[in-house]
């Protein structure tokens, strides 16, 4: 263990995976812990991942000093329906992805340009009318941010994002 007295005081972003029992109120417990103790939530995703064991996986992107991040993990582990907590940012390399559906309304050159940029970003068209596209894009948060920025002058009207899901690289499960 590193000397705790030399823990950095800079704010860092961490992606934390939490395996929980899929039972009533479990998400409220997690969210209530963050709001009650004044921690940040930058994104949060949740879905059942094992129906047989009734387990859900929550992915939380949060930020804080090393001491706060350690505290967040300890507090999460303290919740009764929590099986496992893993800090994907420090527990080894991880893949992080986010999906977004993006509505762009335009005609003429702008419409063509939006389609061209979508192609560069490998975004697919999942809905189309004469005046609009809905693009589906998957990637790291920064890539989606960049795509949205480029769509702004081209008729960006609506954005829906999943928030980050993440998984460790390699053979080891959570």
């Amino acid at each position: 263990m590193a000397d705790p007295k030399k823990l950095p005081s800079v704010i860092e972003k961490h992606t934390i995976a939490v395996l929980v029992a899929n039972e009533a109120g479990v998400l409220a417990r997690v969210i209530g812990l963050f709001s009650g103790r004044g921690y940040n939530i930058e994104s949060l995703t949740v879905a059942e991942v094992d129906a047989e064991k009734a387990q859900s996986r929550i992915t939380i992107v949060t930020s804080g000093t090393t001491q706060i991040i350690e505290q967040i993990k300890a507090q999460l582990r303290r919740l009764v329906p929590v099986f496992k907590v893993s800090d994907l940012t420090i527990d080894g390399p991880a893949v992080e992805r986010e999906m977004a559906l993006i509505k762009v309304v335009s005609t003429g050159d702008k419409r063509v340009e939006s389609l061209r940029i979508a192609d560069i970003f490998r975004a697919g068209v999942v809905d189309s009318t004469n005046k609009s596209f809905v693009f589906e894009i998957t990637g790291a948060t920064e890539k989606i941010n960049a795509f949205i920025k480029l769509m702004e002058p081209l008729g960006l009207k609506d954005v829906s994002r999943t928030g980050v899901v993440a998984i460790a690289r390699g053979e080891k499960p959570l």
Binding site: P4, K5, L7, Q67, E70, Q71, A74, Q75, R77, R78
Partner: peptide, 13 residues
């Protein structure tokens, strides 16, 4: 017994 008590207020060795 509570890991969240460790380093919460005071950093310990």
């Amino acid at each position: 017994i509570d890991p969240s008590s460790i380093n919460k207020n005071v950093l310990v060795d």
